[in-house]
């Protein structure tokens, strides 16, 4: 299962990476490298573009053509690059703050343009690099350094947003389902047009700590707890009528939308 070799695609001299213990982002990178390998992508014609944030740091560890840009703007660089040299496979890695707050406008326009890019948005519901501020994906009630009393705003459903904006391929994966990521990412890359993948990842260091969600292992379990079918099953169940807290919002994974570009 792990038979697909990915280590030769790593800039080994850059490791260990700067991400915190238990951060799920590394799982995504591994899946991305496996997916790229399974597609037999021409490594000289594949460019990985990222913005600013923990997730965007991932490109630095890929032994390939990598571009670490400014906060929120990775998609703009990617758009220019892809249009200037269409033979390139351009894959963007962004985060929730990077891709939905400061870069939200670029995301919806990239989706609307349907340029043949693949965008992985790693959603850990927080600004990790800056110390755990509320991201636009943080659920109402989420504790962060900027929402000490709990977030009061509604959160983005990034996939719904991408669909509405016109992306021709929209999928959601989770770090707790790493092998599913391989397939989703590979399909996203293979898709002609703008492919958007939201990947539930975890920030144990800030979001997990502030919201008492545990560390990496528990946060991975929490993701699976949130899986649509699990969530629906548990919500439908009779309890003893006690004061059990409401669970987190459900997480629907898989390809959510696909149309020819």
């Amino acid at each position: 299962m792990t038979g697909i070799e990915y280590r030769d695609r790593l800039r080994r001299q850059m490791l260990p990476h700067i991400l915190c213990p238990g951060c799920g982002h590394g799982i995504v990178l591994k899946a991305l490298l496996r997916a790229a390998r399974s597609l037999e992508l021409d490594w000289d014609r594949t460019v990985f573009v990222a913005g600013i944030g923990c997730s965007s740091r991932l490109v630095g560890y890929i032994d390939g053509c990598t571009l670490h840009t400014t906060h929120g703007r990775a998609l703009t660089f990617a758009t220019g690059m892809k249009l200037a040299r269409p033979e390139l496979t351009v894959i963007v890695i962004t985060g929730d703050g990077d891709g939905l707050a400061i870069g939200g406008n670029h995301l919806i326009h990239a989706a609307r343009r349907d340029v043949d890019l693949t965008c992985l948005l790693l959603n850990n519901e927080t600004y990790g690099m800056t110390g755990g501020q509320a991201a636009p994906t943080a659920e109402p009630g989420a504790i962060s350094t900027t929402t000490p009393g709990g977030a009061r705003e509604r959160s983005f459903d990034a996939c719904a947003l991408a669909v509405a904006a016109g992306a021709s391929f929209v999928a959601r994966g989770a770090t707790s389902l790493p092998l599913e990521l391989d397939g989703l990412i590979a399909r996203g890359i293979a898709h002609r047009g703008f492919s958007f993948l939201e990947i539930a990842s975890d920030c144990p260091e800030y979001f997990g700590r502030y919201n008492q969600l545990g560390r990496g292992p528990e946060m991975l379990q929490l993701q699976r707890r949130r899986l649509d079918e699990v969530d629906r099953t548990l919500r439908a169940k009779r309890s003893l009528g006690s004061r059990r807290a409401e669970g987190p919002p459900p997480l629907r994974t898989g390809v959510l939308h696909e149309r020819p570009a």
Binding site: V47, V49, T76, F77, K82, A84, R85
Partner: peptide, 13 residues
């Protein structure tokens, strides 16, 4: 911002 971002992407290509 997007405009110059795209320009820089194109330039790198």
């Amino acid at each position: 911002m997007a405009s110059l971002g795209a320009v820089l992407g194109a330039s790198l290509a």
